[in-house]
Every structure is written in C-alpha cells, then in structure tokens.
Write a protein that binds this DNA or RNA. Structure first.
Lengths: 237, 237
DNA sequence: CATTTGTGTTAAGGTAAGGTTAAACCTAAA
DNA sequence: TTTAGGTTTAACCTTACCTTAACACAAATG
C-alpha cells in the first residue's frame, strides 16, 4: 500500500518532552518535524507541507499563538493543536480565535493526543472533499487565480486582489450559483461571527461587486438573512 | 427574531448542576431540552431534532456511553460532547470510539464549554453542504427552490421569496393536494399559535396566492377551521 | 337570520439586514 | 519614522421582512 504518512510539525521548546513526543508520534506512523522554538518552527513550516501542527504555547522568542497567526497567514486550513501548561481560560479562548482545532493541557495522556489527531485528520478528510485544492475559477468572462490572488477580465490585465477579497470571492466561486452562507464565510475567513465582522464582510461584498461589474452576466445576490449567491448567467445566443 | 436557535439535548442527572447548566446555555441563546437520565434522554432525543447532545457519562439506569450508542444508531451525525467527572483515560478513549466530538472534565469552565459548542456547530455548518435535493418542488408551472428561496414561473425570471413566504409555500408543497393544518404551519414556522400569528399567516397566504396567480391550475384553498390545501390540477388534454 | 367566528386582502409602520463610502486603524516594509 | 496596503469601524441610507390594524366578506352556529 502506497499510503503516504501524515506530516506533523511539532514545535516544543522543552527538549525532553519534545523528543519523547516526537518519538511517540513517529512510532505511530507519523512523519514528525521537530522545531525547538517559534522561529525555527516557522522556518520549517514554510519549507514543507504539513497535515497538522502541534504548538506549545509557552515558548521563548515566539509563543505558540504568534506562531499560529503567522502560520494562518500562509495557510488558512492546516489544523492546529495547542499545548498549554495549565488550563488558562484566556489562552484557550485566544486559541480558538486563531482557528485552533484543539488544545491540550500538559501533562496529557499520549493516547488522548493520538485520538485527537485521528479525529482531526478524519474531519479534515471529510471537509475537504468539496473545497479541496481548487484555486482556479472561471467566473463568466473573468478568471480568478486564487493562489496568485488575481482576477482577470477577458484575458486582459490581471487585477490584484487582497487576501480577504480573494478568499471571499473564492468561497463564492466554490458555491457558484448556490447559497454561500454568511456564517460560512465569517467562520472560515474571519474566524469570528459578530456584528462587526459581518459588516466587514458586507464591505468586501461591495468591493467584489465593483470588480465584477464589467460582466453583466455575473452578479452577487443577497439572500436576506442567509448569505450570498454568485450567479453566472450563461446567456444563450 | 430571525435566526433559528440551535437545539441542545442535555442529559445530566445531577439536578443542581443540570439546572445551572441548562440556564446558562439558555441564556446564551440555545434551546435546551434537559433530561434527567439516560432513558428520558433517549425518549426526548427521538421526539425532536437536535443540533448537539451533551451527555453526562455517569448516570443511573443508563450511562452516557450507552445512550450515545443508541443515539448513534438513530443519527450518525449529531455531535456529542461527554461530561466526565474525572479524566479517566478509558472513558475518554471509549468516548471517542462511540463518536464523541469532544469531552469535558467536571468541573469545567462554562466559557470553555461555550467555545467548544460554537466550534462544533461551525464545523457542522461547514460539513453539510452536500445534502440538497429536498428543497426543490414543482408546483404546476412553477418551480420552487426552497433553499435559494425563489419561485420561477415557466422558467422565466425567478421571483425572490421572503423566509416566511418560502417556508409556508414549502409546507404547502409538502402536503400537495392534501390538508396542511393551520396549527402545523403556526408551530413550525411561527413557533407560536395565537390570534396574531394566525392573522399573520393569513396575510402570507394572500401573498402566496398572488404569486401563484399566473397558473390557473394552481390554487390555495381554505378548509374552514382546519387549514389550507395547495391544489394542483393536472389538466387533461 | 342574526350573530359570532374565521378568512381575504391591503396598507401602514417598525425593526433588522444589507449597501455604500469614507475615515480610522494596523502592521509590515521602506 | 514614515508610508502604503489592507482591514475594520463608523455613519448614513436603502431595502426587505414581518406584524398589526382595518375593513370586507364567508361560513358556521343556534
């Protein structure tokens, strides 16, 4: 069987604990890259594709949350598990806002960690059947390249998109002609759902509408209280 | 009062703790059904649709795991959170095996629970993009798309429907040519049955009749004191 | 057949959601 | 430090939705 092992980035400054954990995960068929601090962790993250990150919160130079934020800027999807020394409430909350998938209090049971990892990987696998690695879309007479973040009209000059513009348009395109729930965009892109993020999203919808104006067969419709719909009319000739 | 509250089944035998937790969740805009033991929990589960189950592990008659198993047989998807008195490893593992989404050790911080609930609900919302087809109805020469909330006549320009219009028409369509009891619509859509909601419903019936006027073979009849009937005449040629 | 109760319909008014623009704010890079 | 790009917050306006009121008519009831 050709099954590729899952790759885990482990960032943990305590050398003993880190090594033990790395070995334990390795024994359980994960490929582990072990970084000893936040700096190193970020360097290694950039150099490879990981299926999961396990970050210690308390670290010198760069703590786990800061690292997580940097990681999120590069990749909005990798699952992140935080290791915290104690059950600090604020820490926990902060973690969730960065898009943490779970957190564990040290010391923890290694088998529990394994189960969590499994659960997360599984969820990931289920989630991303639909919206997996799709970065190029045809939207009427536009081409959206979501990886390079540009939008081109009729093969002309590509227009640069900001990260948020890009992600939002991509989400809409993934749900082309279908409902893209407000909540989905808010949780996926803004990672928080409140009055302000909601208004912020509306601002971005307005921006996108402006971008898309050149093609009259493309429009973003609102479904009151539900979300938005990117409609592409295939005009018959 | 637009967004439908999420429904939580809480099964917890400790009366004090259970009540406090129920009130806390209620305060945070969840609809909570509280059962005092496994038996009752399962009965209530069968009678309603829940978005999440929170189960105490240690309970008389029927423990949380057994209950979870029964719940899983009925529904493979509802998220389940376990409450365990202590962090027994066996419990945790067993929980994951039954398909738990998370577990919490009592006593726990209520805000942490809230965050977990939110996270799980979000995940759920993301997941269920797949199941679509039970939203489309053919009503004479009309097409009703209940998910995107529009009504189209003869494949022309889709007409937007408001949430209430949409739900009401959908209920009528589900009972096509049959009685759709007043009470049903009032409890399902208005979640309250009194003079005013009843009059409000009549207003919506009037609106729907206007929408449906273009097709003379479609009409909404009143059954005095009982409800309404969406009649679709299949004209013989 | 008179009165009560239920339904048909339209319009007014309140509230919440969404649209738009600009200013304020942040943060990484110069 | 300043600057520039990106994002959020604020302000103000428009639209969508829902309820309520009002008045008319129909159906049941005794």
């Amino acid at each position: 069987m050709e099954e590729q092992n899952k790759k885990i980035l482990l960032v943990e400054d305590d050398p003993n604990f880190g090594t033990v954990l790395r070995d334990y995960l390795t024994m359980n068929d994960y490929d582990v890259v072990h970084a000893k601090n936040g700096m190193e962790g970020f360097e290694k993250f950039k150099k490879d594709d990981f299926d999961l990150c396990i970050l210690d919160v308390m670290m010198p130079y760069k703590d786990g949350f800061t690292l997580a934020k940097e990681i999120r800027e590069k990749n909005t999807d990798v699952p992140i598990i935080f290791l915290t020394a104690k059950a600090m409430k604020e820490d926990v909350l902060k973690g969730y806002k960065v898009g943490a998938d779970d957190y564990l209090n040290k010391p923890f049971d290694s088998e529990v960690l394994l189960m969590k990892i499994k659960a997360i990987m599984q969820r990931k696998a289920t989630d991303s059947i639909a919206d997996s690695k799709q970065f190029e879309f045809k939207i009427g007479r536009f081409d959206l390249n979501s990886k390079l973040r540009f939008l081109r009209f009729d093969g002309g000059e590509p227009e640069k998109l900001s990260p948020k513009e890009n992600e939002l348009l991509r989400l809409l395109a993934l749900h082309e002609n279908d409902l893209m729930p407000r909540e989905l965009a808010l949780t996926k892109i803004w990672r928080d759902d409140n009055y302000f993020t909601s208004r912020s999203m509306d601002v971005y919808i307005a921006k996108l509408r402006k971008y898309l104006k050149p093609d009259p067969n493309v429009e973003i419709l609102n479904i009151h209280g539900e979300g938005f719909r990117l409609v592409i009319n295939n005009k018959e000739e």
